[in-house]
Design a binder for these strands. Structure first.
Lengths: 117, 117
DNA sequence: CCGTATCCCAAGAGATACTG
DNA sequence: CAGTATCTCTTGGGATACGG
């Protein structure tokens, strides 16, 4: 049992989960894992996220120290997002989650494998 | 992009997340990783979960094939829960999530480490 | 002992419109 | 270009009571 930022967790793994749960966070992190991106590039890569949601998720990731936001004082505005060192550390974990998920879907995908007749 | 059980996922890691997100699932899985448990044993181990919530989480985990439920036709009733093979496979991942979370809390815990005076 | 049923609330997320 | 501001709706979870 631990308290972290006014929230109670029964295991530190729940802290990790709280960092990456959010409709578009995994997608965002995956793309940023390949390199720095601007806001509108992310928008194109995650077209189903509304501008509002994309911003919200980015703000949370930034506040949590997983990504860094750099604003260039130019016109038109230019903002870049990158993974922080901690964000980088997350990448191999995302891969594991991916692999497990893929295995799971393959095993449970075709719902109820017919017993060989 | 994939559809699995009427839900859209942009990455298989999101499938994995959906399997383990739930207020008490990680805790339940962690305890079951150490061995089979009866319902009321779980209740004592997870006292903050209401009976209803505990049941709900267990039902979901069962439906998702991560735990198995065995009912013994005795009086008073006796029900046992165990990890399935797939549930076992989850265990090392939970450990990784734990370790990352612990690192994270340690690094970000004492909010703004004072520059050594 | 091991649940289910009902009611309620708060957080997360979508749609849409506006701005420096 | 890169955001805020509202408003609404759905979902997860809590409280409580009852049943085989």
């Amino acid at each position: 049992m631990l308290t972290f930022r006014d929230t109670e967790y029964s295991c530190t793994s729940e802290v990790t989960l709280s960092l990456i749960s959010g409709k578009w966070k995994i997608l965002i992190l995956s793309f940023l894992a390949k390199g720095t991106l601007r806001f509108n590039e992310l928008q194109k890569l995650v077209p189903d996220a509304t501008q509002r949601m994309l911003t919200l998720q980015l703000r949370t990731l930034e506040k949590d120290g997983l990504i860094a936001r750099t604003v260039y004082a130019v016109s038109p505005p230019k903002v870049e997002y990158t993974l922080t060192e901690f964000g980088q550390r997350l990448v191999p974990m995302l891969s594991m989650l991916c692999r497990f998920g893929a295995d799971y879907v393959e095993a449970h995908g075709s719902t109820a494998p017919e017993p060989q007749a």
